[in-house]
């Protein structure tokens, strides 16, 4: 009796709601602990980065103009999709070297984090906005608005939870982003893109590249159409590279340790701009 040959997955990039291969045609092989071949990952180029930023820029105003309620529902939908595919994610995390129990825990935590941020979308403006009692006859209020397009370096591990922790607060706050998946845990990042794509998240809101940090970080740091960078678990040299180049266009920069993964509304606020509006008050 012949055994069935399983159908293996081709892991690709996620740009503008589509799954293209890298324009460079390059691949990096991912191997398991015993050296067995697992998959070929696209090694994204700076051109892929550019395509992703263009997609993110195009998607941003539309995403920011969606109601907070709708953004919350879409994030919640992503949690539902992830929950439903928990087994697939657990398997992939195990392929990348995690134990069965830690893989399952990680997927559960990622689902819960998505639910957490889904609930923040229509609350953070109330918690962090204000009406300001100015000493003149004006109505004056301040609201947070998304910064724009954010470059993301998620932690190397955990591969799934780290990506969700880095990306979800940005998306909850109306930003769009380009994330470079962890080079050691790229599988769950690409599969997470499928979850997002099944959640009514408009194309271009989250773009995910796989590739080498040393290749993608320099063009990301110098890219003038990227408004901010959220980086987790970076070295001092990487932080200097990001920080010094941020001055090119006054990028907003946030560094976090690799294990700073808890849900936190201040993580939404670090890529929000405060807009203050004045209007005279009068009768007639």
């Amino acid at each position: 009796m012949s055994t069935r040959i399983s159908v293996l997955k081709t892991y690709k990039l996620y740009i503008g709601g589509q799954f293209p291969r890298t324009e460079s045609g390059r691949a990096t092989a991912l191997s398991g602990r015993k050296g067995q071949h697992i998959a070929n990952l696209c090694r994204a180029s700076r051109k892929d980065l550019r395509n992703a930023v263009v997609a993110a820029r195009k998607a941003q105003p539309n995403w920011a103009s969606k109601s907070a309620y709708l953004r919350g529902q879409i994030l919640y939908r992503a949690a539902e999709m992830l929950e439903g595919r928990a087994g697939q994610f657990a398997d992939e995390l195990r392929l990348q070297g995690d134990s069965a129990s830690s893989a399952r825990k990680e997927v559960d935590a990622a689902v819960d984090l998505l639910v957490h941020y889904a609930g923040w979308t229509d609350k953070y403006t109330q918690v962090f906005g204000s009406i300001n009692p100015v000493a003149s006859p004006h109505f004056n209020f301040s609201v947070p608005e998304p910064t724009g397009v954010i470059g993301v370096l998620p932690p190397q591990a955990p591969g799934l939870l780290g990506l969700v922790a880095a990306v979800a607060p940005l998306v909850a706050g109306g930003n769009t982003c380009v994330a470079l998946a962890s080079p050691t845990h790229p599988l769950s990042a690409v599969t997470f893109a499928e979850v997002l794509n099944d959640s009514d998240l408009p194309g271009g809101v989250v773009n995910i590249l796989t590739g080498l940090r040393e290749e993608i970080l320099p063009p990301m740091a110098t890219y003038k159409d990227i408004d901010g960078i959220a980086a987790y678990g970076t070295t001092a040299a990487e932080q200097a590279l990001i920080g010094e180049n941020a001055a090119l266009n006054v990028k907003r920069v946030a560094f976090h340790p690799a294990d700073a993964l808890a849900g936190d509304p201040y993580r939404i606020m670090e890529f929000q701009e405060i807009k203050t509006t004045w209007h005279p008050v009068a009768v007639g």
Partner: peptide
């Protein structure tokens, strides 16, 4: 218009 209670930036 400016005021100490009104964020600026």
């Amino acid at each position: 218009k400016f005021d100490p209670t009104s964020p600026f930036g």
